[in-house]
Design a protein around this nucleic acid. Sequence first.
DNA 1: TCGTGATTGGACTTCATGGTCCATTCTTAG
DNA 2: CTAAGAATGGACCATGAAGTCCAATCACGA
Lengths: 203, 203
Amino acid sequence: MDSSKITERGRLTRQRIIEATGEQILASGIGGTTLDTVRAATLTSKSQLFHYFPGGKAELVREVAAWEGRQLLEAQEPEIHDLGSWESWERWRRMLVEYYIARGRWACPIGSLATQAATTDSELASAIATTMRDWREQLADGVRRMKAAGSVDSSADSQRIATVILAAIQGGLVLSQPERSAWPLEAALDNALAPLHHVATTR
Amino acid sequence: MDSSKITERGRLTRQRIIEATGEQILASGIGGTTLDTVRAATLTSKSQLFHYFPGGKAELVREVAAWEGRQLLEAQEPEIHDLGSWESWERWRRMLVEYYIARGRWACPIGSLATQAATTDSELASAIATTMRDWREQLADGVRRMKAAGSVDSSADSQRIATVILAAIQGGLVLSQPERSAWPLEAALDNALAPLHHVATTR
DNA sequence: TCGTGATTGGACTTCATGGTCCATTCTTAG
DNA sequence: CTAAGAATGGACCATGAAGTCCAATCACGA
């Protein structure tokens, strides 16, 4: 990460490589993504790939994971920092489904990376786990705000609810993929959010 | 699958290859599993691999997927064919978690294959999708039995509930993996089963 | 016993892919 | 204007993994 010796032009090239690699990984998996196809897609040369990512493919993939993680969390702004009311949760839910639909493929850039990386690259796996934890923490904060607002019973376990919601997203996407439809994702997500809604409306 | 020209000895060898490959895939993914490592683990030779799986690695992986799918459904017997009462669901839940714990790794042989295969081998992907559909259908049958028994409101959507449960399993495992614990899986699963329990007890 | 076909062993070939290297061009500070 | 260093091009190398091939061995029925 020594960005001192990099020009604006170089930074753009580097970013172009990361994004193209991310798209290819989402489309064909890590194994199905080769440096040659990345090179072709970005109109760069081998030397550039190793110039910007001295660690080779492994480092490139890690950078992709970091970038995708940031993108994913940013896509949930600003709602993810609210989630203090049922309406906010509903907006968040809509934005998230929108995000996945926009990507075209029914896969979470982080979730599918997690499955693929768990076995091969432990460093990558832990980086992804960190993103997951951040994400879960932000959702748990939202649940806490609901509790503070009295919209959710104070005995509720924020961490647990956040985990259930995240699991619903990941699992919903697994089932949405072959179905080529958002409905499994939406069904799973709605069911996971039910505790929030339910308590909020029946009180 | 012309089994006419295969002896018992050959059948055993073939099966040994399938099981060893399955273990390696679960541990290292499809890409991390090579014919050489399979050969080493099974004390066989290259020619045997191609003798029993003329289609090469692709065919071998498909056979593994089919076998793992059968194993997974069998592991849920006999409860999966009952599920007509809350007690049966509870037994089924316990058996399923037990199955994943016993495998050591927090991954579903079918779910993780689905993620990896979706992109590379469309034939494999559709075979896996079929297993998923079977599974979901059996769960949906269970929900229908609950409805028939009056334990679940007749307006409930069996398919939807089954999908939500499956998503909870898959997503729960994604989160259990980095956590190295069953609790995310159990939390997600329990939340997905809540509708069945809830209605059953509050009536 | 004998022979046919299944089974097995393992060397060899081919090819994709990650990675190295050096020459060339571009950019910018002084 | 010019030199230093960043950026780029692309040939080349090394390796690992899939797949081929032929010879050797085993097992069972006639």
